[in-house]
Write a protein that binds this DNA or RNA. Structure first.
Lengths: 195, 195
DNA sequence: CGTCTATTTGAATGTACTCAAAAGCGGTGG
DNA sequence: CCACCGCTTTTGAGTACATTCAAATAGACG
């Protein structure tokens, strides 16, 4: 079932569309199913799509020159994910974007998005608003990384995003919060040990 | 001299305006002069303006509960600065935005910006594009913070932004890169000591 | 020239990392 | 349905990177 109700509601939270406009928008979308551990973006290949998670969970990460993983973003239901540097500039990706579970994505490709913004300028506004929000999110994350200890960042994360924390592998969460998986294990046990 | 040539060129790099539109845009701007150490944004007050640096240098920073400063952003000529969380949502600021030198700013206030986007939808596009770029910048910074050592982050910064590194106080740069000012001093001396 | 702030230097400390080994868990095939 | 294999998490010991605190020096500004 290609159900576009959820993504239509998502868009409707930010801009009002006529039925005709909505139909046009939906006509530019496509649905993709990915299995756990499958990649939708890999370094070297240009990222063609902006992806909305209908069901499932994804993550974007970098592998550095010491072969360490660093998670840039998670995405669960009703979130977007991509290698935005690659997508926006249509240049080769540096990130992996991987399914953490079997996932259904709704995707729009770069050219369709450009066309959509030209045809319905309200979408210019839509993408401005969601990008602004992502920007604000990243800024908070930088401040959290600068001002808090590993333990505090972990506590903050499980409080703010319990549904993500309980759903993703610990090594992925550790690499998002900026410490080693071993250390996350130690934090966790100190925590439950006390209660 | 209220010279709007530079900001007009800045805008022209992203969208094409008619003379009439440009005149309208400029009519919404105002020029503000701030002296070194003066604040344009303080926690608790809602940030009214998005500010473009005509000449001088600014920084935005947070003071955490241990009274430590953490620099979120620098801005020199041709850059924008604000507490965007406060500006975008028109809610009380959490950051200080301070002049590092005597600075001339060109500002647009929140209501004028909204009006501008309604009147000239091309500005919807303009703000989308500059926000996207800022987003990409922050994402790279997060990855750099996650994957690199203090020393590597310092080297990267002075290579990419020598004009900023040489212009701002060391404690401000240290608090941007995520380590103590004493440690920056040690990095620096190891460096020159070897050459 | 004097004062105030910023930077340097050194010693002691701490937070988080690395490496290695063991235990736990989940998926797959017999 | 159980047994096995591989991957993830746990645990511990030793280590490294960066911090804190304090004191000395240097620099900026009036």
């Amino acid at each position: 079932m290609n159900d576009y109700t959820k993504i239509k509601n998502y868009v409707a939270r930010h801009i009002q569309l006529t039925e005709e406009e909505e139909t046009y928008f939906v006509s530019l979308l496509r649905t993709t199913r990915v299995k756990k551990k499958q990649f939708i973006v890999q370094p070297g290949f240009t990222c063609k799509y902006r992806s909305y998670v209908l069901t499932g969970a994804m993550r974007a990460y970098l592998i550095d020159n010491k072969a360490q993983e660093h998670t840039v973003a998670f995405a669960i239901e009703d979130w977007w994910i991509s290698d935005y540097n690659s997508y926006i500039n249509q240049e080769p990706a540096t990130l992996f974007v991987e399914a953490l579970e079997d996932t259904i994505l709704i995707q729009i490709d770069y050219n369709a998005e450009q066309l959509l913004m030209e045809t319905i300028p309200k979408f210019e506004r839509f993408f401005r608003i969601i990008t602004q929000r992502s920007f604000a999110f990243l800024q908070k994350r930088i401040l959290s990384n600068l001002s808090k200890s590993a333990h505090e960042r972990y506590e903050e994360f499980i409080e703010k995003y319990p549904s993500i924390a309980n759903r993703v592998p610990q090594y992925a969460l550790a690499s998002y919060l900026g410490f080693s998986p071993e250390f996350l294990s130690k934090i966790r046990n100190k925590r439950t040990g006390k209660s």
